[in-house]
Design a protein around this nucleic acid. Structure first.
Lengths: 112, 112
DNA sequence: CGTCTCCCATCGTCTATCGATGGAGGATAT
DNA sequence: ATATCCTCCATCGATAGACGATGGGAGACG
């Protein structure tokens, strides 16, 4: 009873931003990206694989990340994604836009 | 060319929150809500009528706002929306969830 | 060998935002 | 008085993004 409906583990529209940001320190495979986001956000951001991989395809298509096959730490086959120059630009742009939006929403939430 | 694509004037998933918050000071008609959001946010949040009215229907259906016909300041026919008790609860809940999300995203954006 | 975990990926559904469009009615000006 | 503008309501169709369910291959480990 009274369970707060949790329909989304994510703020829609921010997934690309999060993934791009996660790749800044270096290339990672998909599973690792999801784990990292969950860890850094203290379990708040839980990106399902069915959200993650479509997003990665999107990013690839737009030329914001590139991918190459390699072996994971545990010697398993994995696809490593990394930022392109365009990806870094996009990241900066999306970050600005996000800040702009959050700031605007804050103004509304705090208005008289 | 190279025009920064602006696909959304809003952070998806935050419109209900914004509308509910706008109604806290008192009842308003739809057009007024949109104007107020735009004004308070310094023109950042531009809610189109085709986003606004479906959202209001949603809120009505969920019992978070109620509506009654009246006359606007300029003596025009208008529908005034106002918060219900459930709406106030929902507002508090959505606000918490929003803060939680933004905080989590911040952690990611600022990580090593 | 059987099972677990890692890691990839797709399909179908659902929900939400948005562009386009339409209309009623008071206000304003010519 | 009538044309036109602005306010305010509302719906429809397209598009996009997140999610649940599902499936599979390939090391690791008992």
């Amino acid at each position: 009873m009274g369970d707060a409906r949790k329909q989304s583990e994510l703020l829609p529209g921010t997934l690309d931003l999060l993934i791009l940001r996660a790749l800044v320190p270096g290339s990672m495979h998909g599973y690792g990206i999801a784990s990292r986001l969950k860890q850094v956000s203290d379990d708040v951001l839980q990106v399902g694989e069915s959200s993650l991989y479509p997003a990665l395809q999107r990013l690839l298509l737009n030329g914001w990340v590139k991918a190459e096959w390699g072996a994971s730490e545990n010697n398993r086959r994995a696809r490593f994604y990394s930022l392109t120059a365009a990806g870094r630009k996009q990241l900066a742009s999306e970050r600005e836009e996000f800040d702009r939006m959050v700031e605007a929403i804050r103004k509304v939430l705090n208005m008289a």
